[in-house]
């Protein structure tokens, strides 16, 4: 049975929700029906020329009722072209790709999940939070950014019923400081007994993921991290998105993008 395909999605909405951060709603029923939290799409933003050439990997924010939502930051040529898509435009998307977070394993009723987001890395953690809460898992999410303009999805997550903690480098929103310091303080405050039911999920820049992995390892808490690597094919053929792990070289596109934090060998 087919697990992924190329689907011509239709842009339903594409608008800025923060500085340089956009939310796109796509109608793509086949992919939406098969998506798990933490999976991603390979998006061909250029339908006329060869520059940019490759698909861009973008994490799926939410998938429901035939729609897929994306959050993306405009950082270059390809995301710039994505920003220019308008309601009614076709978009060539491939997916769902990757493994996603392991929501079923190790999380049972009454256990707790600590989610850690760096900026728009909150994107896949939203649907993860939703799924976990449907499974009666208590969710606390830490969202960090440089300033308040980089904080997104906090209101939606509060609406879901998750406990939301915000940190910004300049203190313009939430606590002043680094998100990993806030997570560290929080976890260290927990009695060792209550730490046992905790699992950490993180998505954001690599230094943040590395810090989260180190912290989880030190405290003996299981953690999963979603990695972002240069990618070409998205299906495990080119072996471009190599990730060094204790189990050998793995691929972000098919073995990941979500990895057990203990397995990753950080550079």
């Amino acid at each position: 049975m087919r697990k992924k395909r190329v689907e011509t999605a239709v842009v339903i909405e594409n608008r800025a929700i923060a500085e340089n951060i956009f939310r796109m709603k796509l109608k793509c029923p086949w992919i939406a029906a098969r998506t798990r939290p933490g999976q991603f799409l390979g998006i061909k933003v250029n339908d006329a020329g060869t520059d940019p050439l490759l698909r861009i990997p973008l994490g799926i924010h939410r998938a429901e009722n035939g729609y897929v939502y994306l959050l993306y930051k405009t950082v270059g040529l390809a995301t710039g072209m994505l920003k220019a898509k308008e309601k009614g435009d076709d978009l060539d998307v491939m997916g769902p790709l990757g493994n996603g977070f392991s929501v079923g394993k190790a999380l049972t009723m009454g256990s707790r999940a600590i989610l850690v987001a760096g900026g728009y890395g909150v994107s896949p953690l939203y649907s993860l939070a939703e799924t976990l809460m449907n499974n009666k898992v208590k969710v606390t999410i830490f969202i960090g950014a440089r300033d308040k303009l980089g904080i997104v999805c906090d209101k939606e997550l509060k609406k879901l019923g998750a406990a939301v903690q915000i940190t910004t480098d300049d203190g313009s929103c939430g606590l002043r400081g680094c998100v990993t310091d806030a997570v560290s303080k929080y976890l260290r405050r927990q009695k060792s007994e209550s730490r046992k039911g905790i699992k950490v999920f993180a998505c954001g820049p690599e230094p943040m993921l590395k810090a989260v992995a180190g912290l989880a390892d030190e405290l003996g808490i299981p953690a999963e991290v979603s990695l972002d690597e240069y990618m070409a094919c998205g299906v495990g053929a080119c072996r471009g998105c190599a990730v060094k792990t204790v189990n050998g070289v793995k691929l972000a596109c098919t073995d990941g993008p979500v990895f057990d934090a203990r397995d990753v060998i950080w550079e």
Partner: peptide, 13 residues
Amino acid sequence: VGNPAPRIVETAS
């Protein structure tokens, strides 16, 4: 095991 990452980068066309 191949080469160290990054192993891929896009260039003009």
